[in-house]
Amino acid sequence: MQNLKTHYHPEVKTLENKSIFTRLATRSIAIQDNTILLLYTEKYEDYSLPGGGLDLGEDKIEGMMRELSEETGAKDIRNIKPFGAYEEYRPWHKPDYDVQHMISYCYTCDINKELGVSNMEHYEINNGMKAIWVNIYEAIKHNKKTMATSDKKGMSIERETFLLRRIAESIS
């Protein structure tokens, strides 16, 4: 899969003499008409692609389908195609490692417009996460505003906004 970008969080100055934890993840890109299925997270005031970490040994496509279904209630996931990977190095604020190396494998897919019931994790519910079909350009505009003005923004907003811009370029 093509690497779209390698991003270093500003707090990660060097990888030399650092203990690094690698996490593999997937992101789903489902577009219908002029809307894209995203997750809005109230706590961070941002839009993100549905997705998350792969279980140990889990197939990327199966993991992508699992995450998409869990977070959005998506049904009839089909026509899955690779879009690209986003690699990032972020601070890891736990005692066992210094840096998290995350690789997000992104896939386009088709799903039914009508969503079923989601099965989000406890922290996702507590963060006010909800699945929503939204105009991709409005989502990009919203995330850019959050990056510029909000002290609530999380570490993922730069990745998500970069990916949304690349997706928008691919559909225009």
Rank of each mutant, 00 (worst) to 15 (best):
I31S: 04
N34C: 12
I36F: 07
I36L: 11
L37G: 09
L38V: 12
Y40Q: 07
Y40M: 02
Y40V: 00
T41M: 09
K43L: 07
K43D: 05
K43V: 00
Y44A: 11
E45D: 15
E45V: 05
E45Y: 06
D46A: 00
D46E: 04
Y47R: 09
G51F: 04
G51K: 06
G51Q: 05
G52S: 07
G52H: 10
L56R: 12
G57N: 12
G57V: 11
D59N: 15
I61P: 04
E62Y: 08
E62P: 02
M64R: 01
M65A: 01
R66L: 12
E67F: 01
E67L: 00
L68I: 06
L68H: 09
E71Y: 01
T72S: 04
T72A: 06
D76Y: 00
R78H: 05
K81C: 10
P82I: 01
F83A: 03
G84H: 13
G84T: 06
A85Q: 15
A85F: 08
A85V: 03
A85I: 03
Y86G: 05
E87Y: 03
Y89K: 06
R90G: 03
R90N: 12
R90S: 12
H93A: 09
D96N: 15
D96P: 05
Y97F: 15
D98G: 06
V99H: 08
I103M: 10
I103H: 08
S104N: 13
Y105G: 04
Y107I: 01
T108G: 04
C109K: 07
D110A: 11
D110V: 03
I111P: 02
N112Y: 01
K113S: 05
K113I: 01
L115A: 07
S118I: 09
S118F: 13
E121A: 12
Y123F: 06
E124S: 15
E124V: 08
I125R: 13
I125L: 15
N126M: 14
N127P: 10
N127V: 01
G128F: 12
G128A: 07
K130D: 03
A131C: 06
I132W: 09
W133E: 07
A139Y: 05
A139C: 09
I140A: 02
H142Q: 03
H142A: 01
N143L: 03
N143W: 07
K145C: 00
M147V: 08
M147C: 08
T149A: 04
D151P: 10
K153L: 02
G154T: 02
M155S: 14
S156V: 12
E158T: 13
R159F: 02
R159G: 09
E160Y: 08
L163N: 07
L164V: 13
